[in-house]
Amino acid sequence: MSSAVTPRGWTKFGLHLNGWLVYLFFYAPIVLLVIFSFSASRNVGTWGGWTFEWYGEFAGTQNARNALEASLKIAIISTVISVVLGTMAALALERFTFRGKQVFDGLLYLPIIIPDVTMAVMMLLFFAEFFDVINAVFGIQMRKGFNSIVLSHIAFNISFVSVVVRARLAGMDTKLEEAALDLYATRWKAFRYVTFPQIVPGIAGGALLAITLSLDDVVITQFVAGPGWTTLPVYVFGLIRKGVTPLINAISVVMLVGSMSLVALSLVAERVRGGEHG
C-alpha cells in the first residue's frame, strides 16, 4: 500500500469517522448480546444485574444439550465427508479432463447459487422419495432425522469446499507435480508429497467454512430434520416462538465463541504455515 496517498484534513476525518461507524455497527450488537446474556432480568431488553443463571440453564436443559451435541456431531461428520468429496471434485476439475466435465463443473456450484429455501424444499422432496425407495428396496426403516440432516449438509458443503480447494489448486504450479514425477515419484506419491502439502491450507479453509456453515444452518436443517432431531440453531429458532428469554442470548454467545475460536484457530494455523514459508 506504499503507493496510497495519505489522506489529509476533512478527507482524513471523514474516513476515520466512517471506520468507527462501521466498527460500531458491527460490534455493538455483539457486545450488547454478550452483556445481556449475563442479565438477571427475564425480560431480554432490560438489565437486571449480573448472573450466570442463563448459562446454568443452558447446561441444565436436556433439550439444549441434545441440540448442541447433535449440532457438533452433524457438523463434524458432514465436514469430514464433504472435505474428502469436495477435494476430490476439485482435483478432478483442475487436473483432469473427462467427458461431461463442463456440465459437472456447472452443476457442482448450484448449491451455492440456489436460495436456502429452495434447497430445503428440494431436499425435503428428495428425502421423501429417496427414503421410500431405499426402504422398499432394502426393506429397512430409514427416516428423516440425523441421516437426512448430515446428507443435506454434505450436499451444500461439497460445493463450498471444492471452490476453496480449487482456488488453491489453480494457484499451484502444475510444473511441481511434473517435477515430482520426473524425480521418480509415482502419481500417488506426487500427490501425497507435493500436491497435498500445497493445498492443505485450502483444505483447512474449506473444512472451516464447512463446519461453520453446518453449525449455522437453520433453514435446510429445519426442513429435513423430522421429529426427534434438532440442531442448536434450530432449537434457538424454536425458543423464539415461545418467547425470548436471555437463555437465547447465552446460547448465542456460546455459538459465537465457538465460531470465533474456529476462525482464530485457522488464523493461527495459517500463521504457522506462513512462518514455515518465510
Partner: peptide, 10 residues
C-alpha cells in the same frame, strides 16, 4: 531442470 526451476516451495 525445469524452466522456472519448479522447486518444491514447502
Amino acid at each position: 531442470v525445469f524452466q522456472n526451476y519448479a522447486l518444491f516451495p514447502h
